[in-house]
């Protein structure tokens, strides 16, 4: 932390909010679960190596096998290892959730800062635009966007038909619609921050708007941005599963929790566990991110601290 920024810092010192956070068992448990899930997904290749399997290794003679040493969670309808597919699905789902939420937060922050700091006509235009995006019926528009032919947008065919294109597509769509919450939040805070003495002082010293926004305003916004981004991750993972349910999400054979669940729902009578695992993992992840966001909000909120004293 550079010395010049210390006087402007409004949020409680780090030690305090860490303490606050630690007082919230749900938050701590959530973060433990999330770390476990991320670590497990990241270690999927290691798991594959140890057990000498791959998530799309088909074995028709070993369908719907129960848990065993070689397949800890059994196999699916093509004899593929369920645990390996869940881990790889986790990579994709968590990746989508975090990357999309991250990009949406960046976009929202930039737009919110710009609107809030410059104000005037720019602010009016940007906020009107935000209102329009918010007014769009989300799910139907997502359906349309997910069905658009990328070839017609002038993208090359090899790009448009790449195996991971559905991943890029989903992230793009989510970012296009997910930035509004952060933008509104950031704009509102910026509006009040820019009247603060330390900002006015910096302006008087001739700092450029970019510098003021980056060095003086942004650091004070980190906590609300972190909170809203954390909450967004859960929503995005849910959204991915909903789109996959409609057949517009991540396309097989690339596994994601959403399409694993969608695929398994047709087998719900024969192999309920196949539907149970991905559904439960989605549930667990989303609820963890929600609790984490909630706990962070309470821990970072100065007003609440007073109330707890």
């Amino acid at each position: 932390m550079n010395s010049s920024s210390i006087p402007y810092k409004q949020s409680p010192p780090k030690a305090l909010w860490v303490q606050q956070f630690q007082n919230r068992p749900l938050g701590v448990v959530s973060i433990a679960i999330i770390v476990c899930l991320i670590a497990a997904s990241a270690l999927a290749p290691l798991y594959n190596f140890v057990f000498n399997i791959s998530p799309d290794q088909v074995d028709l003679l070993n369908r719907f096998a129960g848990p065993s040493l070689s397949n800890p969670l059994g196999t699916d309808e093509l004899g593929r290892d369920v645990l390996s597919r869940l881990l790889h699905g986790g990579q994709i789902s968590l990746f989508i959730g975090m990357v999309a939420a991250g990009f949406a937060a960046i976009l929202g922050t930039v737009l919110g800062l710009t609107a809030g700091y410059f104000g005037g006509r720019l602010d009016a235009v940007l906020m009107r635009f935000t209102d329009i995006v918010i007014a769009l019926p989300l799910l139907p528009v997502l359906i349309v966007l997910a069905a658009i032919d990328l070839g017609e947008l002038g993208l090359s065919n090899t790009f448009a038909s790449h195996e991971y294109i559905s991943l890029v597509r989903i992230i793009t769509i989510v970012v296009l619609f997910g930035w509004t919450t952060t933008a509104r939040l950031v704009r509102a805070s910026t509006l009040s921050l820019r009247e603060q003495p330390f900002v006015l002082a910096a302006e008087a010293q001739g700092a450029t708007p970019a510098r003021i926004m980056a060095v003086h305003i942004l650091p004070n916004l980190t906590s609300p941005i972190i909170v809203s981004t954390t909450l967004a991750i859960g929503n995005i993972i849910l959204l991915e599963s909903a789109l996959s349910f409609l057949g517009l999400g991540i396309q097989p054979p690339t596994p994601s929790w959403g399409n694993l669940l969608t695929n398994a729902q047709e087998l719900i009578w024969e192999a309920p566990a196949l539907a149970f695992y991905p559904g439960f993992l989605i549930f667990l992840t989303v609820i963890s991110f929600n609790f984490l966001g909630d706990s962070l909000r309470e821990a970072l909120d100065p007003r609440k601290n007073k109330a707890v004293e």
């Binding site: 088909v58 790449h162 097989p252 054979p253």
Partner: peptide, 21 residues
């Protein structure tokens, strides 16, 4: 499709799945 890909892969044919609505 996934079974076929797996069988073709077994003899060294690389199959790139690109499904469409």
């Amino acid at each position: 499709q996934q079974v076929l890909r797996s069988e073709w892969k077994a003899i060294g044919i690389d199959i790139n799945i690109t499904n469409q609505p």
